[in-house]
Amino acid sequence: MKRILLAAATVLLSGSMAFAQEQQPALHPKVLPMFGQIAKTDAQQKADEKFLTSCDKSFESRTEASNFFMERGWEFLNEGQVDTAAYRFNLAWLLNPDNFNTYWAFGVVEFNRGKTGEAISMFDRALKYQPNNSMLLSDIGLAYVQQYINDKKKKNLKQAAALLDRAVKADPNNAFALSGLSQVYFHNKKYAEAWDYLHRGRDLNIMSLDYNYLSELMTHMPDPKGMFRNEPAAVEAAN
């Protein structure tokens, strides 16, 4: 179940960023990663202690409790309730700061808010715990692709390629990493290679297919396999 949730989070990560780029109002610290990393008041610290004591009574360990709140967070995130998910991830982090999944989740949250640099920072924290985690590597790689789209700095595209290559080496069947490499080749204007990697990813897992990116690729080069065409109906039929 956990694996499925993480894959679903990756779909969110690789999807359209238009909604996340809109101007966001100031957020309450409780829905910022690690509670905004700001000093808490005495009242807030007492509330945390009460929460931890309650969890100690309800779960066999804080590790178990942390994992419970992580699962709830992924559920809310998959429903599009980003702030509610972020708060659950914060509770999971409070229970176990060494739970690398919390940093991974914070990265997904920040990415969905359009904060690509902050997302990469959180993913890097998670990577220190799991340096060969293929799904995590593909998430970081996709974040660097988005960072390149934002600032057009070639170093970010090179970093994306390196991370996505590592992801594929760790798991050759990681469809999201293959789809990410397709985007790297696209931005390097190597459209035939981009199509090849897009099809390889799609064949493994159709959920890795980003239709916004697909439409953009088709404007530069027709699908060599003829599976996708410019007509909207054809794109829908291939789903």
Rank of each mutant, 00 (worst) to 15 (best):
T53W: 06
A43C: 08
W93Y: 13
V11Q: 11
K50N: 13
L142H: 05
F228E: 04
F228L: 08
D196S: 12
Y87K: 12
N67V: 10
K2L: 11
E22G: 08
P25N: 07
N174W: 05
A161G: 07
T84C: 09
H28E: 09
K153I: 01
H28F: 06
L157N: 00
E231P: 05
T84I: 15
S58N: 14
K2A: 11
A237P: 03
Y103I: 00
M227N: 14
N205G: 10
F100C: 06
Q130E: 11
K154R: 12
L214T: 04
S182D: 02
G117K: 10
P131I: 01
S16E: 11
E110P: 02
V108G: 02
H220Q: 15
N67R: 15
L6F: 15
N112W: 06
D223E: 05
A119C: 01
A86S: 09
K155N: 10
L164S: 03
A47C: 02
F59D: 01
N96G: 01
E110L: 08
F76A: 13
F59K: 01
F228G: 03
F76P: 00
L198F: 13
D210M: 03
A175H: 01
N230T: 15
Q37V: 09
E118G: 08
K2P: 03
G117M: 06
R88T: 05
G15R: 06
N156S: 10
A92S: 13
Q130A: 09
A143I: 04
R229D: 13
L198H: 07
F89W: 03
R113T: 02
M1Q: 12
D210A: 06
M34N: 15
T102I: 04
F186C: 00
I149H: 01
Y87V: 10
L217W: 02
L32F: 03
D56V: 06
D139A: 15
E22V: 11
H28C: 06
L214P: 02
R62D: 01
D203R: 11
M207N: 15
D48T: 04
L164V: 02
N67W: 10
Y197H: 09
K169T: 14
L5I: 07
I206H: 12
N133V: 04
V11C: 12
T53F: 13
L142C: 10
Q44R: 11
W195E: 03
D98F: 07
V184D: 00
D98G: 05
N173C: 07
V109H: 01
A233F: 11
M207I: 11
V145T: 05
S121G: 11
F35V: 03
R3K: 13
T102E: 01
E79L: 15
N150D: 12
P131L: 02
R202C: 02
M221R: 12
A160N: 00
